[in-house]
Simulated scan of single mutants.
Amino acid sequence: MVPAQATPEGHADPDTGDGTTLPADTAGADGDAHADAAIARLYGEPLLHLPTDLYIPPDALEIFLDAFEGPLDLLLYLIRKQNFNILDIPMAQVTLQYLEYVEQIRKTNLELAAEYLLMAAMLIEIKSRMLLPKRVDTLVEEAEDPRAELVRRLLDYEQIKLAAQQLGALPQLDRDFQRPQLPIEQAPGPILPHVDPHDLQRAWMDVLRRAKLTQHHRIGREELSVREHMSAILRTLQSARFVEFSELFGGQATVPVVVVHFVAMLELAKETLIEITQAEPFAPIYVRLAYSPA
């Protein structure tokens, strides 16, 4: 059974468990005359008379007072509410108000009232000590104010309470904001990438490319003799009367050999051992042995 709270009109709003509730506003939106006389509503319909079988448990109606966290909290509330000077507490008024509150909670919760009764005893003791006449004795120092220890405890409690309120005003996780979470699927073991033949081929081509960049280019020197090529040209011309110029280079493979062969031909022409002739412009060039009279 959920305890009911008092309505602004002072009536209780009990919940009987069968759907019967007191109306928050007795005047219906449609202006029905029966709604003014209804004492409750059952499933939205006005109820003019209480059911004969209606049962309200004794603890269904409760009065909710201001909640305090302890005797010091209640005592500080009473002092601040009436703007008393905390350094000069009027013990008579504060003690009377404190005892009235303790009497209220003692009727409903004796276990909770025990802690407050201890503070009430302390207040009564302080009040009685203040009522005792002071002994006039110049040799004895003036006694300390009986309220000093209570004032110190109240000031410390108020300072801690304000600090707690400031800390409570700070943003807190799971109260003012939520930490973003992103689920990550984790495999039981490492997933190796799939390698196809094309990937292997690209890797092999990359190895060859790097090998070509690091290889050394060596230039060798070929030994060629102009005299040997001169002898080869003379042997070729001895077997034929005329030989076309390009046919003399038919068997030469490399550029250095062709160059040396041409130099040998020029040396033979310089020494008048061969003749280079042409019948007309742009006609084929022929080479033959030089004519020497007997």
Rank of each mutant, 00 (worst) to 15 (best):
L132W: 08
R129V: 07
E228S: 09
T95P: 02
P46C: 01
Q201T: 13
I63W: 11
E111Y: 12
Q181D: 04
H261G: 04
V259P: 03
L54A: 05
A279V: 09
L155I: 13
I191Q: 06
L131Q: 15
K127S: 11
Y286M: 07
E223F: 07
A67D: 14
A148K: 13
P58D: 07
S225L: 04
Q181L: 13
T7S: 11
L139P: 03
Y77F: 14
L50V: 08
Q252F: 13
L170H: 02
A113N: 02
V263G: 04
A6S: 08
L99R: 15
K270L: 11
V287R: 03
F84V: 02
P281W: 06
D30E: 06
Q201P: 07
A4W: 04
R209C: 05
R80M: 06
P23L: 09
R175Q: 08
E275H: 05
D13C: 13
L234F: 00
L131M: 13
V102R: 06
T254I: 04
H11E: 08
N83I: 08
M122A: 10
E275K: 07
V243E: 00
L74N: 01
E158G: 11
L48P: 10
I276K: 02
K81C: 05
V94K: 01
I276Y: 03
T277N: 13
V94G: 01
Y101Q: 08
P51G: 00
P284G: 02
A264Y: 01
F249L: 07
S128R: 15
I39E: 01
T7N: 11
Q165H: 06
L132E: 14
V260R: 11
A143G: 09
A27Y: 06
L42M: 10
G31S: 05
R210C: 03
K127M: 11
A33D: 13
H34L: 13
A113W: 03
E158N: 08
V226R: 11
P8H: 02
Y98P: 02
W204C: 12
A169H: 09
P146G: 00
K127C: 04
L72M: 02
E267C: 03
G17E: 00
P256N: 00
V136K: 15
A203K: 15
D156V: 11
P71W: 01
L192R: 14
L54F: 05
A29V: 11
P281R: 14
T108V: 15
L87I: 07
V94T: 01
Q186T: 14
I124H: 08
P3E: 05
L234V: 06
L118T: 13
Q172L: 07
P57S: 08
L154H: 01
P51S: 00
L266P: 01
L273W: 01
M130H: 07
R202W: 03
